[in-house]
Design a protein around this nucleic acid. Structure first.
Length: 377
RNA sequence: GGAUGGGUUCCCGAGUGGCUAAAGGGAGCAGACUGUAAAUCUGCCGGCUCCGCCUUCGCUGGUUCGAAUCCAGCCCCAUCCA
């Protein structure tokens, strides 16, 4: 049996939003789902037990970072990533493709692969589809991502085309290189920049390679939101309904709702965890910069009806104090809230799909939400 | 009572005649953050009727075209001696 299997439970007849389940070698999780990011074999500041308490069913980790440090062979020796980091639920590993994008000046792309300058010590490193697969097989993640190039924005059509075609060739090499098929599934990554014809091409080519799941990459890279939604909508519905769909790198509530509406099942994003460490917490109404002076004497929880550990026990004033005083507990409390918030948000969204009221859910959410926040309440 | 060192914008602390509203740091305030080079980064930080003006470097007076910077007296602070 395939390592990764998608089960569609319910679909919104109006929007196409899907509720389902994904079965992996390390358990089943319900979709749509948000995957907390644990780049370096840890979701920064929180323990695996805490992630479970929040209801996290799968987390993401990173090939590139673990390859550089501590090295995939060490992790293999430790019994694989699950054992190494004490996480027994599902893990998806990104391939290092995003680093091709984000490490910009430190990297050089060729047909063979990508030469990096390590951001840690400046040493020369090389990643190719074959190496990325070798690393991910050693890590033993449940879902491995194909090695791709995330097309930057803006990019001209010629560059986007050439890059996307190369990503397809790399995807094919990944598929051939991955031999751990019994307990690991490789997802292909759709690219194509902001060009619909290239997205069509990418979908067609990757779907013909028959991956157990597909990711939409190259979005949320600086383009305006309407454009992102337009490309997303254009792309997602072309993907096979029987396979999971994963929108990479998206994680603000408004984007999640729109992603789900267009039929996406999986999301990941550093946003909730990064922003938490910088003093911002997320709410149904928008962001709240809890580090701001406005909350100095605000003795309410972040969200009145939130049942996360942070909201059940601490106030905005206390969080602000911890941030002002540079106390690491503040980073933890904010991270716990933000992750709990997104995970519950997705669960509520799923519930609304199951109960045939997703459209209402979306409308009500959007009515009360300000994407840029500030000064509400 | 005497000796020496010192008093700079919220704090610490540079600055010893014009290029100084005054380095730098801290604190404070705000912003950014979307497959993590991020517990990071950026901006503001005397006042105003803000492309110019006003006030500020212990206090008062003086020298000078011009003073936080030089002179005089005074007031505080620190350490040492009586």
């Amino acid at each position: 049996m395939a390592a990764i299997r998608y089960e569609l439970e319910k679909q919104c007849s109006i929007t196409g939003a899907r509720a389902g389940k994904i079965h992996t070698p390390h358990g089943t999780f319900e979709t749509p789902i948000f995957m907390p990011v644990g780049t370096q074999a840890t979701v920064k500041t929180v323990a695996p037990e805490e992630l479970k308490t929040m209801g996290a069913g799968i987390i993401l980790s990173n090939t590139y970072h673990l390859f550089l440090r501590p090295g995939h062979n060490l992790i293999k020796e430790a019994g694989g990533l699950h054992s190494f980091m004490n996480w027994d639920r599902a893990i998806l590993t990104d391939s290092g493709g995003f680093q091709v994008f984000s490490l910009g000046p430190l990297r050089k792309i060729s047909e063979e692969g990508v030469a990096f300058r390590s951001h840690i010590d400046g040493s020369k490193q090389f990643l190719s589809p074959e190496i990325a697969m070798e690393i991910q097989m050693a890590l033993g993640s449940d879902i491995a991502m194909a090695f791709d190039e995330c097309v930057p924005y803006p990019a001209d059509h010629q560059y986007a085309k050439q890059s996307t075609e190369r990503t397809t060739r790399w995807a094919e090499r990944c598929k051939i290189a991955n031999t751990r098929t019994a307990d690991q599934g490789v997802f292909g990554i759709i690219q194509g920049g902001m060009y619909k014809d290239l997205r069509d091409m990418s979908v067609r080519d990757l779907v013909s390679l028959d991956f157990p799941g597909y990711a939409v990459g190259g979005l949320s890279v600086g383009e305006p939101k309407p454009l992102m939604y337009e490309i997303l909508e254009h792309t997602v519905h072309q993907l096979p309904a029987s396979k999971p769909r994963y929108l990479m790198g998206v994680g603000t509530p408004d984007c999640l709702v729109e992603g789900v509406m267009h039929g996406v099942d999986m999301f990941d994003c550093v946003f909730p965890t990064r922003v938490a460490r910088n003093g911002t917490v997320m709410t149904r109404q928008g962001r709240l910069v809890v580090r701001n002076a406005a909350y100095e004497r605000d003795f309410r929880p972040i969200e009145e009806n939130c049942d996360c550990y942070t909201c059940r026990n601490y106030t905005r004033a206390y969080l602000r104090h911890l941030f002002k005083a540079d106390e690491i507990f503040g980073l933890r409390l904010a991270t716990i809230h933000n992750l709990h918030f997104l995970i519950s948000f997705m669960r509520d969204m799923r519930q609304s799909i199951m109960e045939n009221r997703f459209v209402t859910f979306r409308e009500e959410f959007l009515a009360g939400y300000s994407p840029k926040d500030k000064g509400f309440m």
